[in-house]
Amino acid sequence: MLAMLFGMVRRTSDEELVRRFKEGDRAAYSELVVRYQNRVFGMCLRWMGNRSIAEEVAQDVFLALYKALPRFRGDAQLSTWVYRVTVNHCKNRDLYRRRRAHGRHESIDGVPQDADAPTRQYADDGPIADAQTHQTEASELLQAALATLDEDQRRIIVLRDVEDLSYEEIADILELPKGTVKSRLHRARHELARKLGRNISLADVV
């Protein structure tokens, strides 16, 4: 009886969902989307700094996962793999934005504008537009501070302190030595603390 109850409440593992999906069960994929959508979207948002672009990229990630999952062999954890795919998509889109933005003036606050955002958004794009859609003032502040970090620092700090991944997982996803992750993370936190400290008092943070 207990075993039955346990079985009823047991959370289906990622591996089980992947297996079912490979057999043609789209519902399993749907469950994986539910399971990972916040993490994937969050990663994209913290990277891109713009909700509409983040959503586009996140959708691309899930489309890519749909196509690639049938050949996922399970050598790595699914979560690690999903993050790796997300990072690659974000890198790709970021690269595209930079390329398109080449020759344009950067905004005066140093925050890069979104080069591939729709034209109508140019006037109010970036952290300001982003701030309009963020839930809390703290989240807006954090987004603005993250946007001032360089790409390496931002991706590591997001993976560690927002997504709560281990050093090993981050090293695996970013294909960096663990020592590099450690040192970059320290610099990123130090830099972010400095940025946040300009805007809020320590007491506010704490």
Partner: peptide
């Protein structure tokens, strides 16, 4: 300062996917 920054990130960093995203 670093601890406070980490706590701040952990508290305010995670976001939810937009409504209808799934």
């Amino acid at each position: 300062r670093l601890s406070a920054t980490v706590d701040f990130l952990r508290e305010h960093g995670p976001v939810r996917a937009p409504s209808g995203f799934h």
